[in-house]
Simulated scan of single mutants.
Amino acid sequence: MGEARQAYGLSDAPGGRAAGRLAARSALNRFWRDESGATAVEIGVLMCLITVILITALTTIGGNIKIAFTKTANAIGS
């Protein structure tokens, strides 16, 4: 027939994956090394940081612009 492929998980066969704590540790190591979703998370965090910085900057600039227009309107009106 064919050769049996090693499945991810526990195995009691000789030469198979370790049972018990070692199997859980190897699964955790595999999960820790998996970086398939890391890029999306990093992009999301960067977008949130950029959004917070923009909101803060626009709020500060917006207040200053309002003061400048008020002073200009008062100077023109006088």
Score class of each variant (00 low, 15 high):
Ala27Asn: 09
Ala27Thr: 08
Ala27Ser: 02
Ala27Cys: 10
Leu28Met: 11
Leu28Phe: 14
Asn29Met: 06
Asn29Cys: 05
Asn29Arg: 10
Asn29Gly: 04
Arg30Tyr: 08
Arg30Leu: 01
Arg30Ile: 03
Phe31Pro: 00
Phe31Ala: 14
Phe31Thr: 06
Trp32Met: 11
Arg33Gln: 13
Arg33Tyr: 06
Arg33Leu: 12
Asp34Arg: 10
Glu35Gln: 14
Glu35Ile: 04
Glu35Arg: 15
Glu35Lys: 10
Glu35Leu: 07
Ser36Leu: 01
Gly37Arg: 13
Gly37Val: 10
Ala38Thr: 08
Thr39Met: 02
Thr39Asp: 11
Thr39Cys: 04
Ala40Met: 01
Ala40Asn: 13
Val41Pro: 00
Val41Ser: 10
Glu42Met: 09
Ile43Asp: 15
Val45Gly: 01
Val45Phe: 05
Leu46Asp: 00
Met47Trp: 13
Cys48Leu: 09
Cys48Arg: 15
Leu49Gly: 11
Leu49Ile: 03
Ile50Thr: 13
Thr51Trp: 06
Val52His: 03
Val52Met: 01
Ile53Met: 00
Leu54Val: 12
Leu54Phe: 09
Ile55Val: 14
Ile55Lys: 15
Thr56Ile: 00
Thr56Gln: 14
Thr56Tyr: 03
Thr56Cys: 08
Ala57Met: 10
Ala57Pro: 00
Leu58Glu: 05
Leu58Tyr: 06
Thr59Val: 13
Thr60Asp: 08
Thr60Cys: 07
Thr60Ile: 06
Ile61Val: 11
Gly63Val: 10
Gly63Tyr: 08
Asn64Leu: 11
Asn64Ile: 12
Asn64Gln: 07
Ile65Gln: 08
Ile65Val: 09
Lys66Tyr: 05
Lys66Gly: 01
Ile67Lys: 10
Ile67Glu: 04
Ile67Thr: 07
Phe69Asp: 02
Phe69Glu: 02
Phe69Trp: 08
Phe69Cys: 03
Thr70Cys: 01
Thr70Leu: 04
